[in-house]
Design a protein around this nucleic acid. Structure first.
Lengths: 114, 114
DNA sequence: TAATTCGGTAACTATTGGGTACCTTTGCGC
DNA sequence: GCGCAAAGGTACCCAATAGTTACCGAATTA
């Protein structure tokens, strides 16, 4: 059982999940992954996620950029254009995320009861 | 792109992740999965998770029980004994969770920079 | 002249996360 | 008898976070 303690302390899951386990991050990653071009503009994402306020989306994207999961490219035009895409790290997360989504689809009724 | 919208709306990830994506749930699942007997008592878990207060652990376990990921067995003794274990649904989540932990170990340095 | 687009930020409020203290019943040491 | 510890929680309170609304800038459109 002492081994579990060591394993527990070394487990990265908390630090890692705290980077994208919030209310909106996973949905952004999902959308960027599904996009034809692999690129989405701020207001394109916003049109999909209509229940997410502008501020929360902005905050979410900033976090994902700081975690190096999403790349932010600014074009100095007027009106401004900002394009978001997955980084290589972000792309490497997608198979795991897809597996989680599949699990969710299969077990939704067992887990979400109310 | 209209397809993405439909896919997005049907995506269960938010409801599902909200059930165990919080600060402590994944660690509890991790510990229950690693336990020799598959069963842990309240204060056994607490001794592993020393940075989680009694109240938060209690709340976390209650949520996991309501989501049918964890089974709670009460023995009417004095002092009381309460044993926690993974349900079948909870067990079915573990491979996905393990994949996530492995991803975290591999990409920790890229994602957690500060 | 007024309205709209685009990607935000500032100021505020509502909701949640989390800590401390306390409860219950029983057995143990003295 | 007297006080204390153990078990698994809950009540009360405060701080941190989630989220809403209003607003910004310059430029095109109506």
């Amino acid at each position: 059982m002492a081994d579990i303690k060591a394993e527990y302390l070394a487990c990265p899951i908390r630090q890692v999940v705290s980077r994208f386990g919030d209310k909106w991050s996973l949905l952004v990653l999902f959308l960027l992954n599904r996009s034809d071009t692999g690129v989405l503009r701020f207001n394109e994402i916003r049109r999909f996620m209509t229940d997410c306020s502008q501020k929360m989306l902005s905050q979410t994207l900033k976090n994902l950029e700081q975690s190096h999961l999403v790349h932010r490219e600014v074009y100095p035009e007027v009106p401004p254009r900002v394009e978001y895409s997955l980084t290589d790290t972000g792309k490497s997360l997608m198979p795991v995320l897809t597996a989680l989504i599949d699990w969710g689809k299969e077990h939704f009724d067992e887990v979400v009861t109310d």
